[in-house]
Design a protein around this nucleic acid. Structure first.
Length: 593
RNA sequence: GGCCUCGUAGUUCAAUGGAUAGAACGAAAGUUUCCUAAACUUUAAAUACAGGUUCGAUUCCUGUCGAGGCUACCA
């Protein structure tokens, strides 16, 4: 099967050489816009000046050359310097046969590229439940991992759990003080929510202490440092680091509650991990590295004894890598863990961190230091930086309880799916269990699509008052299109005596095929740019094309057997590409809905 | 203050420097004796502002205005 655009590109290069003695720039064919006649379009302006001809003359000459030299080119037209090339039906029929015969059209098998990538995502703190911001992280990380696999790479999904630190101690302390022995089972609360409750309780009590101290005449800064609760939390952290048995025991118990809660949320979200890391095991990494770097002269010791690196040449300022008391800062362990992973997985080519864009600066510094330390793979490290999810009133804050809780949101989506489905009343044959599964699939489809269709780099807005849509540019619309095709396929199952088509019968068939044809290229681009939104917007377009085709081209009622066969084959392939594409987003599609 | 993002219909999102800036929701109108109307077809509606580069700028550059983030011996 000849790939149309590369065929046209190669032939056009020859044409430029023969007609105008030009080499380069490389001709790129894009999809012809729908208001014009043709399949692929070449912009000829780059060749106008060197060829010393008018745009239309250049376009016409190339068009004639292509028509004469390729059996697939059926004709061309020129509009204001744009050369539109049309391909014969035979090409599209050949494509349909070819793609239809592939078990996973557009998807490469994992491991065939020879590249191994570790993708870290999720990385929650164990002091509070997951909220909508974490949901974006999880869905993005999972989807990018799946897309990278579809590009043939081997992917190791990693989760680095932030299970230690002052924030954990705050929850622990508040539970000790105000909890009265409450447990997830005694309160009938999900473990992560219970722990989160005490994190909020700490903040509330702490704020009132600060307020009182300020009233006694302290400055705000002094009050924040001297509040008894904060001092206690810091003391607890010291005890934790010293291995105090009671503190460690409480820490284990409460983290255990959180993990039980997280595993439920992860299961609902449909995300998973190949390796788990815990900061309590890794937070000391990197210290020796600092000594090495000091010897190499990459780092230097400051007067007060702390160790730093000068990155002012790169516009990144001076950065402390070890405190004067010899303890680690955050970047110390990040340096250590990065190196550790390349030791642990010898075949590793790339390390991707799925972390919000508020840490852009941190990762620039991290990669720069790794590079200065002489690690060749430093250039392969990538910060998959995504924008915050904002509410109409601004950023979400766990401490202040102004968050959209992940579990609540999932439950709400499922309830909406249930209500909508019941209202439409199209699921007679389903039993209770199947219905439950369908509601979950649709609710989750709506949520995942809503989040993944937005360019990850951009911040996005979520208004809890306006529920996520199920009509229009949404997951359920695409799921519905799939179910609709499957319904036709079930009816067609009984058909016999079909004839192979020799031509297309309708413009909608051609449009749809050309859209399907794009799929492998879209998967490549999405992989290269780590962008699930490319897939999401593509599959929406595909569903739109299918629905148009569906309305304009009858299938079961079509009398000509060859045309019917053609339309069934296109439908079958459409359904498969929709399902594959949605899977790349972590979204399942139903047979019926 | 310095650095980094970002300003597109009423709203939420699209647009490798290319043709008349696409969708969806919302608004207005239509399609069901017809394969699933969670669909399809119409209409109205937008590039913050001012310069510059270019055959061509939403896209690149500069400035103004506006929004967010970062700027810890926190994580």
């Amino acid at each position: 099967m000849i790939q149309a655009q590369s065929m046209l590109r190669d032939l056009t290069e020859k044409a430029l050489q023969e007609l105008f003695q030009l080499s380069g720039p490389e001709p790129v064919f894009q999809k012809t816009r729908k208001e014009f006649e043709g399949d692929f379009t070449l912009v000829t302006f780059p060749y106008v000046k060197p060829a010393r001809k008018s745009p239309d003359a250049v376009a016409t000459a190339i068009g004639e050359y292509l028509a004469a030299h390729s059996k697939y080119v059926s004709g061309f037209n020129v509009v204001k310097g744009f050369l539109n090339i049309a391909l014969h039906d035979a090409y599209w029929l050949e494509f349909l046969t070819h793609a239809g015969a592939m078990p996973h059209f557009g998807i490469k098998e994992e491991g065939t590229s020879g590249r191994t990538i570790m993708l870290e995502y999720s990385s929650p703190n164990t002091n509070k439940p997951l909220h909508l911001g974490h949901v974006r992280n999880n869905l993005l990380g999972y989807s990018v991992a799946t897309i990278l696999k579809a590009n043939g790479h081997k992917v190791i999904k990693a989760n680095l759990v932030n299970d230690r630190g002052i924030h954990i101690c705050k929850s622990m302390l508040a539970w000790q003080k105000f909890g009265a022995g409450e447990t997830p089972s005694s309160s009938n609360m999900k473990g992560d929510h219970l722990v989160g409750k005490y994190y909020v309780a700490f903040d509330k009590a702490y704020k009132s202490e600060v307020k009182q101290l300020i009233e006694k005449g302290l400055t705000e800064e002094e009050a924040k440092k001297q509040a008894p609760l904060m001092l206690e939390a810091q003391e607890m952290l010291r005890k934790w680091e010293a291995g105090d048995a009671a503190v460690r025991e409480l820490w284990k118990t409460m983290n255990g509650w959180v993990y039980e809660g997280f595993s439920i949320t992860y299961r609902h979200l449909g995300v998973n991990f190949d390796v788990m890391y815990y900061e309590s095991n890794t937070y000391l990494l990197g210290k020796e590295l600092v000594q090495e770097g000091l010897k190499k002269g990459v780092f230097y010791k400051k007067e007060n004894g702390s160790i730093a690196i000068d990155l002012t040449a790169e516009g990144l300022d001076e950065k402390i890598v070890l405190r004067s008391d010899g303890t680690s800062v955050y970047i110390t362990q990040d340096l250590g863990t990065a190196i550790e992973r390349f030791h642990e997985f010898k075949e590793l080519n790339q390390l991707i961190y799925t972390v919000g864009n508020e840490q852009d600066f941190h990762f620039k510094v991290l990669f720069s230091i790794l590079s200065k330390l002489g690690y060749s793979w430093a250039t392969e490290c990538y910060h998959l930086s995504y924008g915050m999810v904002e509410l109409p009133e601004g950023k979400m804050k766990s401490r202040e309880g102004t968050v959209v809780d992940a579990d609540d949101l999932l439950a709400e989506m499922q309830a909406t799916a249930e209500a909508t489905t019941k209202e439409l009343g199209k699921v007679d044959g389903f039993n209770a269990e199947e219905l439950e599964k369908l509601y979950q699939l649709i609710g989750l489809g709506a949520l995942k699509y809503f989040i993944l269709k937005v360019d990850p780099r951009k911040k996005m807005l979520f208004d809890p008052k306006e529920s996520i849509d199920f009509n229009g540019h949404t997951g359920p619309f695409i799921q519905y299109t799939h179910a609709r095709i499957k319904s036709v396929m079930r009816r067609a199952g009984t058909l016999q005596d079909t004839i192979d088509p020799t031509a297309l019968s309708h413009a909608a068939e051609r449009d749809l095929l050309r859209c399907i044809y794009e799929f492998p290229a879209v998967v490549e681009i999405a992989g290269a740019t780590y962008n699930p939104a490319d897939i999401a917007n593509y599959v929406y377009e595909l569903a739109k094309y299918y629905n148009r085709f569906y309305h304009e081209c009858p299938i079961m009622k079509e009398e000509r057997a060859d045309v019917q066969r053609l339309r069934l084959a296109i439908s079958e392939l459409s359904a498969r590409v929709i399902a594959e594409a949605m899977l790349l987003l972590g979204i399942e599609v139903p047979e019926k809905m």
